[in-house]
Design a protein around this nucleic acid. Structure first.
Length: 290
DNA sequence: CAAGTGCCTTTATC
DNA sequence: AGATAAAGGCACT
């Protein structure tokens, strides 16, 4: 099965899966394999097409954000030379629509870790607590259900390499298992309200919440600011802030909540309703070019 | 090869 | 309010 990609639907599968928004895809013999829900999606990009197996076209379109009008989004965020450069370089990078539960746990785990370590942790969690699914002779695992992580012992979670994140994951799994989060409803809730609700979960601060909102809850205005984005802002957008503020965030190890929100609202007011796309292009640029 | 640094931060405490 | 320290452990240099 395949989806045609014409000039009005730019897409770059490799960049989309490698840019650090998702952690459980593998490229084997020219095909990307990733578990989406209960199923292993098998996907590759060829001239003019996205080809896929073991999935349905509407699910592929939804997961890879192919319903978003990327040309319109890119022209809307292209406010200056720097972002235009990043957009030209990685054009076709799309924001995925990931599973909110998996995204929530993934980004709780992601705090203060590098991407390879995050992949390692999530792979451990899935292998130990998920369901085995095979395709083309390769073994994959679904992401563990909330009820499974809720009954896991903390010792088991520590063995997956979660470290101090263990109790956050465990308690958040409890909350989700108890029905405290209706992700379906959160996708229909406004950005600020949905964010406030996510912040009630342990291990979820403003940055983690923004990642969940952007990558799984369909809030393209979310503008996560991690160390790379802070660098990008210091390097290319410091004239949008006072000298004093820039000096402060240059020196400090960690951003406090109000400084974080200042940077986030800059992103939203400067780049507009698709600030999250701008963030992902700038983030990827900063990580690959630097 | 050892040791140091950094990592898509949050929370507790003062 | 705002600053500071502590919290795994792995990958990279």
């Amino acid at each position: 099965m395949r989806i045609r990609l014409d000039r009005s639907t730019p897409f770059n599968l490799d960049v989309t899966l490698c840019c650090g928004q998702t952690f459980r895809w593998d490229k084997l013999a020219g095909w990307w394999y990733g578990v989406v829900g209960e199923r292993v999606f098998k996907v590759r990009q060829t001239e003019g097409f996205v080809e896929f197996e073991n999935a349905e076209a509407h699910l592929v379109r939804n997961y890879f954000g192919l319903n978003d009008n990327l040309n319109r989004i890119l022209s809307e965020i292209s406010k200056d030379g720097h972002i235009k450069n990043a957009v030209d370089m990685f054009s076709g990078l799309r924001i995925l629509r990931q599973d909110p539960w998996e995204c929530l746990i993934s980004y709780i785990c992601a705090t203060y870790k590098n991407i390879s370590a995050i992949k390692h942790m999530l792979s451990n969690l899935s292998r130990r607590f998920g369901e085995k699914v095979c395709l083309d002779g390769n073994t994959f695992y679904t992401f563990p259900k909330p009820e499974r992580l809720a009954v896991a012992s903390e010792a088991e979670l520590v063995e997956c390499g979660l470290g101090y994140r263990t109790k956050y994951v465990h308690e958040t799994a409890d909350m989700v298992n108890d029905g405290l989060y209706d992700f379906e409803r959160l996708t229909r809730t406004g950005y600020a309200d949905a964010k406030a609700q996510l912040l009630n979960a342990p291990g979820v601060g403003p940055k983690v919440a923004d990642c969940i909102l952007l990558f799984s809850l369909g809030k393209p205005e979310a503008f996560p600011v991690d160390v790379w984005m802070r660098r990008a802002i210091l390097r290319h957008y410091n004239d949008h802030f006072t000298r004093k503020f820039i000096a402060k965030i240059r020196e400090k190890e960690a951003l406090n909540r109000s400084d974080y929100e200042k940077l986030g609202s800059f992103g939203r007011s400067y780049f507009g309703q698709f600030a999250g796309y701008a963030q992902e292009y700038l983030y990827h640029y900063e990580r690959t070019i630097r």
